[in-house]
Design a protein around this nucleic acid. Structure first.
Lengths: 222, 222
DNA sequence: TTTCAAATGTTAAGAGATTGACAATCTTAA
DNA sequence: TTAAGATTGTCAATCTCTTAACATTTGAAA
């Protein structure tokens, strides 16, 4: 139920940040928050925050502010965090293990139901409650469990193969850490790319061209 | 030697992508590339690519195109990838190990010289050539080695403590995976934040509000 | 119950980024 | 050596995002 249709990516990428902060406040028992307070704590303008929130509806009370728990819940609902989309993870290396643990809490809208690898050393090992399975069993698993999202924590070449394989098994949503870009091959997919190398190189540029550079999130393109 | 002064963050965040792709072409032995080809392969407009590159100088030859190896080297130089900034990493969990391996190749402008953790189980273990050191020895290490960048792969509370500690030891550049925002405390720092939870939540939003959403990189805020 | 103060919701202006069009320049072939 | 073809470099227009200002609404106190 968005108030307006075209919500821009810039707005969407700020929502998780709002959510995180509000959740934190909620836990601390804070009842009420003002857009100006939020702006100070997050390093944004109050205007932007009010405008962002009003893309989805008027969650505040004029003359009073926002009720923390209510606003937090609303943003969580907008993000769809309670959906718990069934997810599989490919690649049980260090990165894969780290991301599996990240998702284990299920707080971000995804429920991890399987981890796969093709290295004999890793198959059979435990990640949280889950046992790492052989990639050979992927097709069967997908047919039985119908996972909805796949996290790709494998090198580029493997990602190319696996991405297309998973697509053929019906998966259309990806969290992608590799440099292979699935969405260029399959335009009907939703792919969230995380390019850690790019992030490092950007940092390198900012350091190298130092004069008094300010902070910028991946989110807040300045 | 930037042609113009204020290069926008939007442009900078595209440079690593150009670099990666050109490096790939270079390895394959491709000599010449056109802006139109680049645009097709990367899913951008040719105009944008030409404009981006011209922020730094005219690297192409009119009527011919760009020489792959030359352009690749130029972008690498602009990003400062050969600087090999001395870097320490905090947190030898799965994420830390993954990022240490990422940086081990030194291809992204940083040279890892130390890994720290405070868990007795991890101290003394190996990550590549490096041995995980006790966080207690951080101050001495910093005084002797003068690291220039620190990668924070620790939980929020630890990041808060460590971030300020490292700042007091003179470190001003951070690659930050935690949710603690150093730059709000210390405005004279350069911080590249990677918020994996945010990335997941954004993906969750995009899936939940599906109609025919298109691809968007963390980089290319659409 | 009424009024004042305060903070949101909303609109419009300003800043920034992207796109398209064209001029400038180079390569190549005759 | 010259001219044609091709592609970059650059400028201007469009589009998008952000910021500021103001109108609107609500809550609290008198």
């Amino acid at each position: 139920m968005p108030k307006r249709e075209n919500i821009s990516m810039s707005v969407i990428r700020r929502l998780p940040r709002y959510y995180r902060f509000l959740y934190h406040l909620k836990e601390k028992g804070v009842v009420r928050i003002l857009s100006t307070e939020l702006s100070q704590k997050l390093g944004l303008t109050a205007s932007q925050i009010r405008q962002d929130l009003n893309c989805f509806g008027g969650f505040g009370q004029q003359g009073y502010g926002y009720i923390v728990s209510q606003l937090c819940d609303e943003i969580g609902r907008i993000l769809g965090l309670s959906n718990g989309y069934k997810t599989i993870l490919l690649g049980a290396g260090n990165l894969g293990r780290a991301m599996a643990n990240h998702m284990a809490f299920g707080a971000d809208g995804f429920q991890l139901i399987g981890v796969f690898d093709n290295s004999p050393e890793k198959i059979g090992t435990k990640i949280g409650d889950l046992t790492v399975l052989d990639t050979a069993g992927l097709e069967t698993f997908c047919k039985e469990q119908s996972p909805f999202m796949a996290a790709l924590c494998v090198p580029r070449t493997a990602a190319e193969r696996l991405g297309n394989l998973l697509y053929s098994y019906g998966i259309r949503n990806f969290w992608n850490f590799s440099h292979y870009d699935i969405s260029l091959q399959h335009p009907d997919t939703i792919v969230e790319n995380v390019h850690l190398n790019d992030s490092l190189m950007t940092l390198c540029y900012r350091i190298s061209n130092n004069p008094n550079q300010k902070r910028t999130d991946v989110t807040s393109v300045k």
